[in-house]
Amino acid sequence: MHTEASEGWGGQEIRILTESRGLMARGHRLHLLCSPQSRIYSEAQAAGVPVTAMPLSKKKWPGLKAMRDWLTLNQPDVIITHSSTDSWLTAAARVTLGRDIPVIRLRHISAPVTDNFGTRWLYLRASRAVVTTGEMIRQQMIDLNRYPGERIHSIPTGVDLDRFTPGDRDAARAEIGLDPAHQIIGIVASLRSWKGHETLLEAFAGLREHFPVARVVIVGDGLARISVEAAIDRLQLHEWVTLAGDQRDVVPWLRAMDVFVLPSYANEGVPQALRQAMGCGVCAVGSAMGGIPETIEDGVSGLLFAPKNHVALGAALADLLENPDKRARLAEAGLARARERFGMEPMLDRMEALIRQVM
């Protein structure tokens, strides 16, 4: 059983569904509990993942009662929680019902875990194991929170490499309406402040005159759209930036890009979109924070730059736009790295083994 209190949509929610479908294909029974207002509720239904809606978005009595009622009627072998609120509601329901169901707490982001008695109890007593999406997050919890390393398991999110594969760039651009003559710098990410869209726009503003056929394509939507639009206004980039919004199928958008950029400066685990881009054979550039350096080997399978440093990002982009051979070499190495390390099967193997272990 998975629980998710978040009503947003991004890598965390996508992992829940891809992992669920992968384990269902191996013969396991899965069930998701989430908020009726969340996008994952409708996406789970479309993906064929059994789902029940309940008020999990707040730590209040209706959510606790709904969780208690569901656990009274159902007998999950293991519960995997994903956000703070659903983790606390699950723990409270188990304690008040006296049900010793093993719990795995999955930590997706790199923001430090609060260091207090309650959170320590939640992670180490109410949960039998903790999973992080990257080794950096695991080590941070060991170093900062003093959690025992044997309780924490780094299991990065896998990418469906049968879907995210290289394709014809011009055909992809024709499909989505992008000019084949342009050099496309792209990003696929929720519009959140810490994803660093404004850093990308600042970097591009310094390049615009030197690369007249370069363009920026931003795929995704979210609460930071207003600030992104304001940055486009301030930098006078309307003619050079495409805001594509949410796209159900991002594969043609990735294949259309010459360079993929992820300029996050906080909270980033191991980003799926970056690995998807590499699986599509696109040259990748990322900030050196969170789990991004676990994905890109700087100068080998992509380029890294200091977070929030638009000058450094601009220099990296200029280098790649001026040197198509280097861009192709990094893209080829990134594709090889994706095929070797980023597929679905390693994630499913390790999650399956851990589930059996905690049971």
Rank of each mutant, 00 (worst) to 15 (best):
G245A: 13
P263V: 02
A231N: 00
G245L: 14
I226P: 03
V261D: 00
D246W: 15
D233T: 13
W253Q: 06
P252T: 11
D249V: 07
E229D: 13
D233C: 08
V250K: 03
P263L: 03
V259A: 10
P263F: 02
W240M: 05
S227A: 13
Q272N: 09
Y265T: 00
H238I: 02
L254I: 11
D249N: 15
T242G: 08
L237F: 09
V250E: 04
L254Y: 06
P271T: 00
W253K: 03
F260V: 05
V228P: 14
M257G: 11
Y265I: 01
L243C: 12
I232K: 03
N267C: 05
V228F: 11
Q247A: 12
H238L: 03
Y265G: 01
P252L: 12
P252I: 10
G245W: 12
L237T: 10
R234Q: 15
P271Q: 01
F260Q: 02
L237A: 10
Q247R: 15
V241L: 11
D246C: 07
R255G: 05
D249T: 08
L262V: 01
A244K: 09
M257R: 06
E229W: 06
E268T: 00
Y265D: 03
G245D: 14
E239I: 06
A256K: 01
L262R: 00
A230K: 15
A231K: 08
I232G: 05
A230D: 13
R255L: 07
L262W: 00
D233M: 08
E239W: 06
N267T: 04
A244R: 10
L262E: 00
V259K: 02
S264W: 05
N267R: 11
R248P: 11
L262I: 06
V270W: 03
S227F: 05
R234G: 04
L254Q: 08
V228L: 13
F260L: 08
E229Y: 06
V251S: 09
P271V: 01
A256N: 02
W240E: 13
G245C: 13
A231M: 14
V270K: 02
P271C: 02
S227M: 12
G245K: 13
G245H: 14
E268P: 00
H238R: 03
A231Q: 10
E239S: 13
I232P: 07
I232V: 14
R248T: 10
A231C: 06
T242V: 14
T242Q: 12
Y265C: 04
R234A: 15
E268V: 00
A231F: 01
R248H: 04
T242I: 14
T242N: 11
E229Q: 15
I226C: 05
V251D: 05
R255F: 08
Q236T: 10
A256W: 02
L235S: 04
P252C: 11
